[in-house]
């Protein structure tokens, strides 16, 4: 279980998160949605300790994680944009991350999942954008920890890879893992998310299942329901 308590963060005068409180239950896939600049990435980066919140607490289980570093060993995190040392190969990076984390990774699984075998010994600057994203996914998920945090995991992936990733996440949920991801691809949310956290201007506008949001907005289609919310809030201004 992951818990945020009154988490606030501003960059200068811009308030990105304003006393956000939420609980993410174990064994669920939770999609963090919201328009550009609504604080999705900031929320995730706070959880990873990359952004230092101005106020509020974060917990994983009962352990408070603000300012700690060891807890990151229990999380597999895929950042939105990931570049790595360009002079190294994917194979070297696997060994390096295993060495740094002092955990053994299961890279083979992802090499097969995304057909990466022929790319493992290329220097990273020779890889295409999509292949790079596959390599990033491999590097972040190979440790098979209990918590998965994915910031826009489908960026640059081809349809086959998206389907395989989706199936993989589904399997992991069945294995009882907690998965948090952000995306702008609504069908993906409808297909795999158990819960939605909808962020709007630094607040949680909605947290609950897809069907609850649909009935709340009186819609049958999630894309329309979300558009409704956005239109309502912009007309308020």
């Amino acid at each position: 279980m992951i818990r945020f308590e009154e988490l606030s963060k501003s960059f200068g005068k811009l308030v990105v998160l304003d006393k956000v409180s939420a609980t993410i239950p174990k064994g669920k896939i939770v999609a963090v949605l919201g328009p550009n600049g609504s604080g999705k990435t900031t929320l995730i980066k706070s959880l990873m300790g990359m952004v230092k919140p101005n106020a509020g607490q974060m917990y994983i289980g009962e352990q408070q994680i603000n300012g700690q570093s060891n807890y990151r060993g229990t999380i597999d995190y895929l950042p939105q944009i990931s570049r790595h040392p360009q002079n190294l190969t994917a194979r070297e990076l696997i060994t390096m991350l295993e060495d740094i984390r002092e955990q053994k990774g299961d890279a083979r699984l992802f090499v097969d999942l995304f057909d990466l075998e022929s790319h493992l010994d290329k220097h990273l600057h020779n890889l295409s954008g999509g292949t790079m994203q596959k390599v990033s996914i491999m590097l972040s998920l190979m440790f098979k920890n209990d918590i998965l945090i994915l910031d826009e995991p489908t960026n640059g992936l081809d349809p086959v890879a998206i389907i395989r990733l989706k199936d993989y996440l589904d399997e992991e949920r069945k294995a009882g893992k907690t998965i948090i991801f952000t995306t702008h691809i609504i069908p993906l949310v409808e297909e795999i998310a158990d819960e939605i956290i909808f962020l709007l201007e630094g607040h949680i506008y909605f947290q609950g299942s897809v069907s609850t949001l649909l009935s709340k907005e009186n819609e049958t289609n999630l894309e329309r329901a979300i558009a409704n919310v956005l239109l309502k809030t912009t007309s308020h201004e």
Binding site: M48, G49, M50, S69, N70, Y71, R72, G73, I75, Y77, P79, I81, S82, R83, H84, P85, Q86, L97, I100, R101, L139, S140
Partner: peptide
């Protein structure tokens, strides 16, 4: 500047800043 993203990768690991 070149290693910024690499550093972000490291920041996600269980090591101190």
């Amino acid at each position: 500047y070149n290693s910024r993203d690499y550093v972000e990768m490291l920041l996600a690991q269980p090591i101190t800043r």
